[in-house]
Amino acid sequence: MTAPLISLPQATSSNGPFVIAVELSQSDARSTRAHNHARGQLLGATSGLLSVGVGGQQWVVPAIHAAWVPPHCTHSIRSYGPFSGWSVYVAEDTCAMLPAQPCTIRMSSLLREAARRAATWETGDLDARQVHIADVIVDEISVARHEPLGLPLPCDVRLLRITEALVSDLSDNRRLEEWARWAGITPRTLSRRFVAETGFSFAGWRQQARLLRALELLAEGKAVTVVALELGYDNVSAFIDMFRRSLGTTPGRYFEAGAQ
């Protein structure tokens, strides 16, 4: 487990500045065990991507997104490779105007630059200019567009076996009936329980898993063609169509937008 970005008294109290920002780069991966604190936390990667575990879900957070974790919400974090990222901690009473549930958001250029500016401040009370920037950060979090980047896991051990096998090899294109036979469950039960326990159909869950993995690979700089084949798509067009349906744009334009 790596050291916290801010001290325990800062994380567990609303005393001090209502916004505390930190930016950090380290040569090794960053990993924190499940924990919670009184301040809300907005966190993201400066480059690459993070995985945030919260509420029985795993969220992949590329550099163009950020994850919002409300006060007292248990979460864990790990980076893919060396860590370069940032966090904004918001005092609990200020979080009343922010999302009550954890979510992933698309970062605006204004929010990104305001957070980076706040990360340069020295510890202590905020002056009038800093208060203005901190207010901008809170406002930007409150109006940011939510992005569907979560991947809930089922509780049924048979379904969990299937999801674990899928995640280990997302190019596996076996049909629902074949997976049901492999796990010792009827296709009808598999289909019904997948929706009940994850909110996704079996096909929808696999597509979401592939989308998250695609974001990881694309953030690492892999070519769209390589990513499509690695995820089991017969051709690049089918992969791009899936990406566009899910996120409203092509892979290339999606990451270009995040760099703005």
Rank of each mutant, 00 (worst) to 15 (best):
G55L: 04
D172K: 00
H75P: 06
V138E: 08
R253P: 01
A183R: 00
M242N: 13
T225L: 14
T46A: 05
R129L: 14
E147K: 07
Q260P: 03
F18G: 03
S201C: 01
A34Q: 05
Y89A: 09
V138A: 13
A119W: 07
R253Y: 05
L42V: 08
R244P: 13
R117C: 11
E122F: 06
L170M: 11
D135R: 15
F194E: 04
Q10W: 08
I105C: 03
G204S: 00
L190E: 01
G48I: 01
A3I: 13
M242Y: 02
L211D: 02
Q10L: 14
I185W: 05
A119T: 09
G53K: 12
T32M: 09
P251Y: 03
W68M: 03
I162H: 06
A223N: 13
I77K: 10
R78I: 10
E140H: 09
M1E: 13
E147W: 07
E197L: 06
H37S: 02
I240Q: 10
S76R: 15
C95R: 06
P70R: 03
P9R: 02
W59N: 07
R188P: 02
R244K: 14
A114D: 11
Q260F: 13
L149P: 04
R181F: 03
L8Y: 05
D125H: 14
I20F: 12
D156V: 08
V90T: 04
C73Y: 05
G56L: 12
V61K: 02
Q260V: 05
R39H: 06
L170C: 04
L126R: 02
R210A: 00
G85I: 13
A11G: 11
H65S: 10
L231R: 00
P152H: 02
H37A: 01
